[in-house]
């Protein structure tokens, strides 16, 4: 799109509209709004990737806080586990944000594209529910991580496993979050579900709880380095927040499998474009 002739008014309206759609689709498909904000702003609106990453990061905080407020009442979130893993994700986020400053925009674009492809694949593949395992894990017991979540038949208890491996993966998720301005929700759920063997409902809500805290750690670094442009962040944050709020209301109503597939294809196309442009060095 040629944005050269636009005024700030027109640009802000278009950006808010795009961010609204990103937030809506992100909430409906579970991919999160952050993953499409950066490609949208850079590829479509011609925004510098550093400003795009900054705006995306604060939008991620907004949607995480908004959604966490709804989830915690339902009692799925494992607070202790979330806090423990936040030690890893915030440390990773500070590392990632500092790496971002010295890394070329083209390299960031290529890494971004690869993470997008992984997220899109992960969103269609889905995760099967598994029964709780019985034998206790020493580290998880010491840290009192085992918990329970509500089901129609009463509270189902579960045990947490492989804490050090999960902790390490969370550090990586934090680095990507700080480097790319995304929530890294897909990687967080992967670490909790596949490695730590936490039930899907508990890992998605705990992941969402952690996303805002993780992003808040790198937001400070972004602020000091001038990545947060108020004029750009304003329409993006408000648009994503409105879209995500509507999306989470609609989500309770229907089957979103087809929508998820369409969104995954769209995200993959954006991912490939980011990779191609990054390799050509046009960022």
């Amino acid at each position: 799109m040629d944005v050269a002739g636009l005024t700030i008014w027109q640009f802000s309206l278009l950006a808010a509209g795009g961010a609204f759609l990103a937030g809506l689709l992100g909430a409906l498909t579970g991919l999160g709004g952050g993953v499409v904000i950066v490609p949208l702003l850079t590829l479509v609106f011609g925004v510098d990737i550093r400003y795009a990453v900054g705006a995306s990061l604060v939008a991620v905080i907004a949607t995480s806080s908004g959604a966490a407020a709804a989830y915690v009442r339902e009692g799925y979130t494992n607070i202790r586990l979330g806090l423990l893993l936040e030690v890893a994700t915030t440390g990773g986020a500070l590392t990632g944000a500092m790496l971002a400053i010295g890394t070329s925009a083209n390299v960031i674009a290529v890494i971004f594209g690869l993470v997008l492809l992984f997220s899109a694949y992960f969103s269609i593949k889905g995760v099967p529910e598994r029964p709780a395992e019985e034998s206790p894990d020493r580290v998880a017991t010491w840290l009192a991580l085992d918990s329970s979540y509500p089901t129609p038949e009463g509270r189902q208890t579960y045990r947490v496993r492989h804490v050090p491996a999960g902790f390490g993966l969370m550090y990586g998720a934090g680095v990507l979050s700080g480097l790319l301005g995304i929530g890294s929700g897909a990687l967080k759920v992967l670490a909790m579900d596949r490695v730590m063997r936490i039930p899907f409902k508990a890992s998605t809500t705990t992941s969402n709880f952690m996303i805002g805290v993780t992003a808040a750690a790198s937001a400070g670094v972004y602020l000091h380095r001038g990545y947060l442009d108020p004029g750009l962040a304003m329409p993006v944050v408000l648009g994503v927040l409105a879209g995500a709020t509507l999306g989470s209301r609609l989500l309770a109503r229907g089957n979103v499998d087809i929508l998820r597939l369409i969104f995954a294809v769209l995200v993959s196309a954006l991912a490939l474009q980011m990779i191609v442009n990054g390799l050509r060095g046009t960022f």
Binding site: L6, S12, R225, D229
Partner: peptide
Amino acid sequence: GAQPPHYATFRGE
């Protein structure tokens, strides 16, 4: 509102 946006150029610190 009536000015052109400058988001394509990073001004940084």
